[in-house]
Amino acid sequence: ALPRSARYALDGRGGDHREAHNVYGLEMARAGYEGLRRLRPDERPFLLSRSGWAGTQRYGGTWADGVSEGWPGLRASLSLVLGLGLCGVPYSGPDVTGSGGGASDGVSPELFLRRYQLAAWLPLFRTRAGTGPGPHEPWEFGPDVAEYARVALAERERLRPYFTTLARLARMTGAPYVRPVWWGTPEDRALRDCEDAFLLGDSLLVAPVLTPGADRRAVRLPRGRWYDTATGRAYEGPGQVLLDAPPSRVPVLARAGAVLPVRGEEGGPVLEVWAPAAGRTGGGLVVRDTGDGWEPAEIERYQSRLVDGRVVVERVTDDGTAEAGLPVRVRGL
């Protein structure tokens, strides 16, 4: 909002607002972060900034706002989250609102639900009352939307240990939570052309519904075996499959051999393991939640393999392998 004639020092060489506005956003995020640290030095600050520059990820994340309205905006918000992750900002996501659909009474129940389901699989997941008319909360769109939103939220909470692990790994390695499907095989042209699905970490492939009226959708698979997490059916990649996408959920596939930390019925962490293919091994990383302070985190490594038709899960240590030490739930056999 500042005039272009506004002047900045820019390390002594001078310049106007056209050159400095991105640095201005970055320094605002830095100032907010440092101010919070002074107020509460024992807690790790976290900021959400609407603007910034390379380095903003040091202070928190951003939300994918300002995209086009309606269904095109849903696809654009996914592209924005993927792009931010590749540019070094791993924590982002769109707001879920009941406005911005272009209709006089706000968005349709279907568009709101598909927005909600997409956001539930992204790093930043929050609802927000929009500025337009019409309903804004899941229950205001009717009992079906409310129930399907509850299912998406419950799955998000079940996967919280996995999101915690991805957050820690993003800080340690720079790898974003949300990755393009070509992440492991950038030479695969078919995967590079896929813009309507994404990997969540190494273990899950999420295929959100981005078009109205769809109850099935094609999904492009990377190489290897993938399990439909809803049905348990296995598919072999590379290739394309057609999966059910009813209003109650979006297609999500798990990589064979994946070891994911999830929340068990008692609230503690459980290892959810998807059976590896015969003759192959799998694995996964787990980083426990150490709270909101500055405590260091430890990366735990696990491997999975088939032994006489039984899935064996072990923890990998510097001295070899040991028992997993956590409850194990096997899926996909």
Rank of each mutant, 00 (worst) to 15 (best):
L48V: 08
R50I: 00
G55A: 08
G55L: 09
T56S: 15
T56L: 15
R58A: 15
Y59R: 01
A64N: 04
G66H: 03
G66M: 01
V67T: 15
S68H: 06
G70P: 13
G70Y: 07
L74I: 10
A76H: 11
L78I: 05
S79H: 07
L80D: 12
L80R: 10
V81I: 07
L84N: 08
L84Q: 10
G85T: 05
L86S: 08
C87S: 13
Y91P: 00
S92P: 09
G93F: 12
V96W: 00
T97R: 02
T97Y: 00
G98Q: 04
G98F: 02
S99N: 06
S99G: 15
G100M: 06
G102I: 06
A103N: 12
G106L: 08
P109F: 10
L113S: 11
Y116T: 02
L118V: 02
W121I: 04
L124T: 04
F125W: 08
R126E: 15
T127R: 03
G132R: 00
G134V: 04
G134W: 01
P135V: 03
E137I: 00
W139F: 13
G142H: 05
P143S: 06
D144K: 05
D144Q: 13
A146I: 11
V151R: 12
A152W: 01
L153V: 04
L153S: 11
E157G: 02
E157M: 08
L159K: 01
P161D: 11
P161Q: 03
F163M: 09
A167P: 02
